[in-house]
Measured scan of single mutants.
Amino acid sequence: TFELKGKVGKVVKIAEDHYLVEVEGDKWIAYSDEKLSLGDRVMVVDVDGLKLKAKRIP
């Protein structure tokens, strides 16, 4: 999973306390310091076990 750092994905679902992000065809649980919206493009900035930390990108 460490190779996911720096990869770009898309928010495909918003849950109460996390997001579901699709990166290279796989879906991952993600969290972010900022509020994300459905369809936002994100970059993986860190990997915490099986969770990704994501940041919105333009």
Rank of each mutant, 00 (worst) to 15 (best):
D40Q: 04
M43V: 14
G6S: 02
A54K: 01
H18T: 09
K7Y: 03
L36T: 01
E3W: 07
D40A: 06
S37G: 10
S37Y: 13
G25H: 06
I14M: 12
L52F: 02
K53I: 03
E34D: 14
K53Y: 04
V45L: 05
K35N: 08
G39H: 12
G25I: 04
K53C: 04
E24V: 06
I57T: 06
E24I: 06
D33N: 07
I14F: 09
K5R: 04
H18K: 08
G25E: 06
P58H: 10
D33H: 06
A15R: 13
V12S: 05
E3T: 01
K53N: 04
K13M: 10
I14N: 08
G49E: 13
D48S: 07
A54Y: 02
G6D: 13
L50D: 14
R41V: 10
K35T: 11
G25K: 06
Y19W: 11
V23E: 02
D48A: 04
G49D: 13
F2I: 15
K10R: 10
K5G: 13
F2R: 15
A30W: 02
K55L: 04
K10W: 09
A54E: 01
K10G: 09
Y19T: 06
K27T: 11
V45A: 05
E3N: 03
E16H: 11
E3Q: 03
P58K: 05
K35S: 09
V12Y: 07
G9L: 14
H18Q: 12
D48H: 06
D40T: 05
V47M: 06
V42K: 00
G6F: 02
P58N: 09
E24P: 01
D33Y: 07
Y19R: 00
W28L: 02
Y19D: 02
G39A: 11
D40P: 00
L36I: 05
V21F: 03
R56M: 09
K7G: 03
L38K: 08
R56G: 11
V23S: 02
R56Y: 11
L20K: 07
V11G: 00
M43T: 08
P58V: 08
R56F: 10
A30D: 00
W28G: 02
F2K: 15
F2A: 15
K7C: 12
K5I: 15
G9W: 01
R56Q: 09
D26N: 14
D17M: 09
K35R: 12
S37K: 11
K55P: 01
V21M: 14
G9A: 08
L4F: 03
K27S: 10
V8M: 09
D26Y: 13
I29V: 11
V23K: 01
D17N: 08
T1A: 15
H18V: 10
S32Y: 02
L38F: 13
L38D: 08
D48L: 08
M43Y: 04
E22Q: 06
I57V: 12
A15C: 12
V8E: 14
V23F: 04
H18P: 00
A54T: 15
L4N: 06
K35W: 11
M43D: 08
K7M: 05
A54R: 00
E24R: 03
E24A: 06
E16K: 09
R56W: 12
Y19I: 04
T1C: 15
K55I: 05
V23Q: 01
I29Y: 14
L20D: 07
L4A: 07
V21E: 00
Y31W: 14
E16L: 11
I14H: 07
V21P: 00
G9I: 14
L52M: 03
K51M: 07
L20Y: 10
K51H: 06
L20P: 00
K53A: 03
S37V: 11
D46C: 03
W28T: 01
G49K: 06
E3I: 02
Y31A: 09
R56H: 08
K13V: 09
V44N: 00
H18E: 14
K5C: 15
V44Q: 00
S32I: 12
L36D: 00
R56C: 05
V11R: 00
V44S: 01
D46V: 02
G49V: 07
R56L: 13
V11K: 00
K35F: 09
V47W: 09
E24T: 04
L50W: 14
E3G: 02
K7I: 03
Y31K: 12
E22Y: 11
E22V: 13
P58S: 09
R56N: 05
V45C: 09
L20N: 06
K51V: 13
K53H: 06
H18N: 09
D17V: 10
G9Y: 02
V11C: 13
A15P: 04
A54W: 07
G9F: 06
R41L: 13
D17I: 11
D26L: 14
I29R: 07
E3F: 04
Y31I: 13
L36F: 05
I29F: 14
I57G: 03
F2G: 15
V44M: 05
R56A: 08
L20W: 13
K27D: 10
A30Q: 02
K51Q: 05
K35D: 10
L50G: 07
L36K: 00
W28P: 00
E16T: 09
R41Q: 13
K51S: 08
W28K: 01
K27R: 12
F2S: 15
E24Y: 04
L52Y: 01
F2D: 15
K53Q: 04
R41N: 13
V12A: 06
V45G: 03
L52D: 01
K35M: 10
E3H: 04
E16Q: 10
T1W: 15
G25F: 06
K5N: 15
L50S: 13
V11H: 00
V21Q: 00
V23C: 05
L52I: 15
S32H: 03
E34N: 06
D40W: 05
Y19S: 06
S37D: 11
F2N: 15
G39S: 11
I57Y: 11
V11A: 03
Y31V: 13
D17T: 10
G25M: 06
L20Q: 08
G49S: 05
G25D: 05
D26V: 11
E24N: 05
K55A: 14
G25V: 05
D17E: 11
M43I: 14
V47R: 04
T1S: 15
K10V: 11
V44L: 03
K13E: 10
V44F: 15
E22A: 06
V23M: 05
V44D: 00
V12M: 08
G6L: 01
G9N: 00
A54M: 15
I57E: 12
G6P: 00
G39M: 10
V8L: 11
K55Y: 02
E16P: 10
L50Q: 09
K51D: 04
D26C: 13
D46R: 02
V44W: 03
L20H: 10
S32K: 07
W28F: 05
K10E: 12
I29Q: 13
K51I: 13
K35Y: 11
V12N: 04
K13D: 09
A15W: 13
V21T: 03
L38A: 08
L4Y: 03
I57M: 09
E16D: 12
M43S: 05
H18S: 12
G25N: 07
G49N: 12
V8C: 14
D26W: 14
P58I: 07
E34G: 08
L20M: 12
D46K: 03
K7V: 03
E34M: 05
D40M: 06
R56S: 07
L38S: 07
V21R: 00
R56P: 09
D17S: 12
G9K: 00
D48M: 09
V11W: 01
Y19V: 05
V42D: 00
K55Q: 13
S37P: 03
L38E: 12
D46N: 03
V47L: 04
K51T: 13
S37L: 11
K10D: 13
P58L: 07
A15N: 12
E16R: 09
G9T: 02
D33T: 08
L4H: 03
G9R: 00
G6E: 04
D48N: 06
D33P: 07
E24L: 07
L36M: 11
I29C: 11
D48Q: 09
K55M: 06
D17P: 11
Y19A: 10
K5M: 15
R41C: 14
T1R: 15
K51L: 10
V42E: 00
K53P: 01
S32A: 12
D17Y: 10
I14S: 09
V47P: 02
